[in-house]
Simulated scan of single mutants.
Amino acid sequence: MLAFALKRLGLAVLVTLTVSLVSFSLLFMSGDPASAIAGENASATDIEAIRTLYGFDRPFLVQYTDWLFSALRGDFGQSYYFKLPVADLIADRLSTTMLLGICGISFALLTAVPLGVAAAVRPNSFIDRLALFLSVMGQAMPSFWFGLVLIVIFSINLGLLPPSGSSSWKNFVMPTVVLGYYAMPAIMRLTRAGMLEVLNADYIRTARAKGASEWRVMFKHALRNAVVPVVSLAAVQMGFMLGGSIVVESIFALHGAGYLAWESIARNDLPTVQALILIFSLFYIVFTFLSDLANAWLDPRIRVG
């Protein structure tokens, strides 16, 4: 297990370095950063002064190395628009996005996994049809439209939940449902397919022949093996929720890191965009690494392979 973990960790470090290089290169792919900072009406002298001030006249590799070591210390530079340290901006917004992502993936797992198991246990039944209906609806329905519908029903018509803000737990109910419902279809289908495959395996028939209770067969033998791909998918979905919650945060006025990313892109605030891309990518890498370890613990054949 230790050798497997070290191998995965080394791969995660290599991916992180690659992502850091790509995210830093975005500063130059979008054009001349000195011209972007100076503005449209700036003179050539002003642009050259800004290029010298920010160190854009140095070799690319030197700039990247300095930025990388500063990022490792938590220093991502200063925002061009907000005139504040980027690290402080992100730290102020990240807690909202983290809370929303954790609530969203929890809602998705607690809803999709039981429905997937029930649909597999009773194929072609009402619960199976219901799971299929919810899965199709989740794929076909845009998240922004679903969020607006919830606001109209539960905020405007019924007055049960606040439509925006982040002052209490009630503000996170509708965003959690919208964000989690987007991840439900894939998790539900994967759980159902995995359970259908496992329930027809020889060791399940053996366990039942030995007199094991149906509860023990389902949750100790079947679900443990069927849930392995679900863990990997949940890790990817969690990374997506943290990095792709821009729409949900905009609809419900949750000023998290996703909304900060939209603001930074709209205002050409490149240091903030760089830092957010790196941080969101790190979330993907960390969650994927943890899911690999969890899968290796659930299924020893993975670490042996």
Rank of each mutant, 00 (worst) to 15 (best):
A49N: 11
A186I: 15
G258M: 06
D88N: 05
A112C: 02
T272W: 00
I277G: 07
A253R: 13
G104L: 02
L99S: 12
P229H: 00
L9H: 00
W169H: 03
M1E: 07
S166G: 13
N268L: 10
A3W: 03
G244R: 03
M188V: 07
L148Q: 13
A186S: 12
W297C: 04
G77A: 10
L6H: 06
A118F: 12
Q274E: 04
K210V: 09
F283L: 12
A275E: 04
A226I: 00
I279W: 03
L260N: 08
L109A: 08
P300F: 06
L100R: 01
P271R: 00
I246R: 03
E263N: 12
L21E: 10
E214R: 07
F69Y: 14
M238I: 14
G147Y: 07
F133R: 14
R122H: 09
G116I: 02
V227D: 00
P123K: 04
R303L: 01
I285Y: 01
R301G: 00
P123D: 09
P142D: 08
D88Y: 01
N295H: 04
T206A: 15
P142H: 11
A183Y: 12
L26K: 03
T206Y: 15
I302M: 05
Y80W: 10
A294L: 13
T65Y: 13
K170L: 15
D75Q: 09
R8Q: 09
N200G: 13
T206P: 13
A118Y: 07
D202V: 11
L190N: 07
V19L: 15
V178G: 00
V286A: 07
G243H: 08
D66N: 14
L130N: 11
L278G: 01
R216P: 05
Y80Q: 00
L109G: 06
V248W: 04
